[in-house]
Simulated scan of single mutants.
Amino acid sequence: MVDNWFAGEGDDFRLLGTRCAACACVFFPREDGFCRNPGCAGGELAEVPLSRRGRVWSYTDGRYRPPAPYVSDPELPWEPYTLIAVELEAERMVVLGQAVPGVAVTDLEVGMEVEVVPGVLNEDNGTTWTTWHWRPVEVGA
């Protein structure tokens, strides 16, 4: 788990960002030292939960072993994964992440609604490292 990037479980699961008190810019990954807005000298940043839902901005399939912190056993066959760039509703920012297992690029369309859910980065010796995944929202949900 990457500390302070997300919190909660189930319907309370959220990515965590920071908002600048001076210019109201929101950042993810979070920023705790300074405002990343080059036109702002503000430095007071507060943690904010980000929108749970957004719309697919772009997507692709990963046909290579990802770099750290993702873990893959070189002794096992490689399984492709789906990456989704999602524009968050309220923040109007794009956040990249993997799709939930089982979602392929053929299941996605630009503009479709997705939501952030907890995912598993790796499991080893009884320890589970968590991350976030994007999951398509069912029509009418």
Rank of each mutant, 00 (worst) to 15 (best):
D61Y: 02
D61G: 03
D61R: 05
G62R: 06
G62M: 10
G62N: 11
R63W: 05
R63Q: 13
Y64R: 10
R65K: 14
P69Q: 13
P69H: 09
Y70T: 13
Y70S: 13
D73T: 10
P74A: 13
L76H: 08
L76P: 00
W78F: 14
W78M: 15
W78T: 06
E79C: 04
E79R: 07
P80T: 09
Y81E: 04
I84C: 02
I84S: 02
A85I: 02
A85R: 01
V86H: 01
E87G: 05
E87P: 04
L88K: 04
L88C: 08
A90P: 00
A90I: 01
R92W: 00
R92A: 12
M93D: 05
M93Y: 03
V94N: 03
G97F: 05
A99S: 12
V100G: 04
P101L: 08
G102D: 07
V103I: 15
V103C: 06
V103K: 03
A104Y: 01
T106A: 15
D107M: 07
V110H: 02
G111Q: 10
G111M: 11
G111T: 11
M112H: 04
E113S: 12
E115A: 12
V116D: 06
N122C: 12
N122F: 11
E123I: 11
N125A: 15
G126S: 10
G126L: 09
G126F: 06
T128P: 03
